[in-house]
C-alpha cells in the first residue's frame, strides 16, 4: 500500500471531476452557436437569449447610423457558412454579391451599439456575436467585418473588429 499516492490520486480525481462539471456548466452558459441566417430563422424563438454567432452579407442600402446615440442598424442576407461551398460558388466576393442581389434570400435585422466600423459597406461579410430578441431582431455585441479584396491573404488586414 502506498497511501500517499492514493491520497494524491484521490484528491486529483475529485478535483478533475469537479472541474469537469464546472467546465460543463461554463460551456453551457458561454458557448456560442454558429448559425446561418436561414438556421436562425428556422430555429426562431427556441434560441432567443442564447449566445449566437451568425454571419451574413451586409445590404448597403439598409445601413442606418445615428452618431449621437451610436446606434447602428442594418440588414444582412443569408450566406452559407461552409467554406468549401463558398469556394465552389466562386469565392467569398461572388457569394456575398449573389446574396445581396437575390431578393428571395432570408434577411435579418441587426442592431449594434457602438462606433460604425469603416469596413461596414455593401457586400461586406458581417460576423456578429450576440443574441436574438423576441421581435426577431439580432442584437450584436461584437461585430467583425470582412471585405474580400485583393488583400485577401493579408489577414488580419481585412478583418476589423469592434465590440462594445
Amino acid at each position: 500500500m502506498q497511501p500517499v499516492k492514493f491520497i494524491i490520486g484521490g484528491v486529483l480525481i475529485l478535483a478533475a471531476v469537479g472541474l469537469g462539471f464546472y467546465s460543463f456548466s461554463v460551456t453551457r452558459q458561454t458557448a456560442e452557436y454558429f448559425m446561418t441566417v436561414d438556421e436562425l430563422i428556422a430555429e426562431g424563438q427556441t434560441v432567443v437569449g442564447k449566445n449566437i454567432r451568425i454571419s451574413g452579407a451586409v445590404i448597403g442600402d439598409t445601413i442606418e447610423y445615428d452618431a449621437q446615440s451610436l446606434t447602428l442598424k442594418f440588414t444582412v442576407a443569408h450566406v452559407t457558412g461552409d467554406n468549401d461551398e463558398i469556394e465552389a460558388q466562386g469565392g467569398l466576393a461572388e457569394v456575398l454579391h449573389t446574396a445581396v442581389t437575390d431578393p428571395t434570400r432570408n434577411h435579418i435585422d441587426v442592431v449594434y451599439e457602438g462606433v460604425m466600423p469603416d469596413l461596414l459597406r455593401d457586400e461586406a461579410q458581417a460576423i456578429m456575436t450576440g443574441t436574438l430578441h423576441v421581435d426577431g431582431t439580432f442584437y450584436a455585441e461584437e461585430l467583425l467585418l470582412k471585405c474580400p479584396t485583393r488583400y485577401e491573404e493579408a489577414v488580419p488586414g481585412q478583418v476589423e473588429q469592434a465590440s462594445r
Binding site: 464546472y22 461554463v26 460551456t27 458561454t30 458557448a31 456560442e32 452557436y33 454558429f34 448559425m35 456575436t129
Partner: peptide, 27 residues
C-alpha cells in the same frame, strides 16, 4: 472546440474569451 463539438453534437459551437477566463481562473 468547434471541431470537437461538431463531431460530438453535430452543432457548430465555439467558445470565446469568457469561457477560457472562467475555466482557467480557479486553476
Amino acid at each position: 472546440f468547434p471541431l470537437v463539438a461538431e463531431i460530438i453534437t453535430n452543432q457548430r459551437v465555439t467558445v470565446g474569451p469568457i469561457w477560457y477566463e472562467r475555466i482557467t481562473a480557479p486553476l
